Amino acid sequence: MFRIPRPYRRPISPGQAGTAELGSTAPLETYVLQRLASTGCIPVFAGTAFANGLDIPDHEIYDPAVMAAENAVNFMIGWDNDLISYAKEKFHGEVGTNVPDLVSTGRS
């Protein structure tokens, strides 16, 4: 039976960085949590186990080392995307919607 072991529907406020449409940005810590929820990795991890016919016990899924590895992959994908799309977002006037903007403006 297919199940997604941990909730992947985390609340995400409007805009990539929270309040970008209103001319302000969320603090870096808030953006980081939102980015974890917006990369799409969490359902992919669960779907990969299902597609391979694996029934991974909860004590392994919730192991701190496994969760840390999942978060590391999630951060790498999200932040790489921020770096790769940075020039395009600047060109289109999207300011404060990625990690480079938040770090460069000291919003930590």
Rank of each mutant, 00 (worst) to 15 (best):
D58S: 14
N74Y: 03
W79A: 05
G106L: 07
F45H: 05
N81H: 10
E94M: 01
A68Y: 02
T97F: 00
Y86E: 07
P5G: 13
P100N: 05
A49P: 03
E29V: 00
H59I: 08
L28R: 02
W79H: 08
R6C: 13
K88I: 04
G40N: 03
E21M: 11
G18E: 04
R10Y: 12
E29C: 08
N74K: 01
I77D: 12
L36F: 07
S108T: 11
N98S: 01
G96P: 00
Y86I: 03
Q16L: 10
I12M: 15
L102H: 00
I56W: 04
P27G: 08
I12H: 08
P57C: 01
F75C: 09
M76P: 14
W79L: 06
E89V: 01
M67I: 13
M76G: 14
M76R: 14
P27V: 03
T39Y: 00
H92Y: 13
A65W: 12
D58L: 08
G53W: 02
N81D: 14
N98A: 07
I4T: 08
V66A: 11
S108R: 13
S38A: 07
R6T: 14
A26Y: 04
P5Q: 15
L22T: 00
E60T: 11
N81R: 08
D82E: 07
F75P: 13
V103S: 01
S85N: 05
S13V: 12
I42G: 10
N52V: 09
G78E: 00
R6W: 15
G47C: 02
L28Y: 04
F91T: 11
V99W: 04
P57N: 04
N98I: 01
E94C: 10
N52Q: 13
T48K: 06
W79V: 09
K90V: 13
I61T: 07
K90H: 12
R35Y: 03
I61L: 12
N74G: 07
L83W: 08
K88R: 06
T97I: 02
P11Y: 09
L33P: 06
I4G: 09
G47V: 04
A37I: 01
P43K: 03
F2N: 12
A69D: 07
F91Q: 15
P100G: 08
P7S: 11
L36D: 00
P14F: 06
A37F: 04
T30S: 10
M76K: 15
A51Y: 06
D82L: 02
A26E: 00
T97Q: 07
T25M: 06
H59T: 14
F50I: 11
C41W: 09
M67G: 10
Q34A: 12
A72K: 14
V99A: 03
P100E: 05
A65H: 06
G96N: 02
I77R: 08
Y86D: 05
M1H: 13
H59E: 11
F50A: 12
S108L: 12
A69N: 06
W79N: 04
G47Q: 03
N98C: 05
R10I: 14
V66H: 06
G93R: 02
M1C: 12
A20K: 15
A49F: 08
L33R: 11
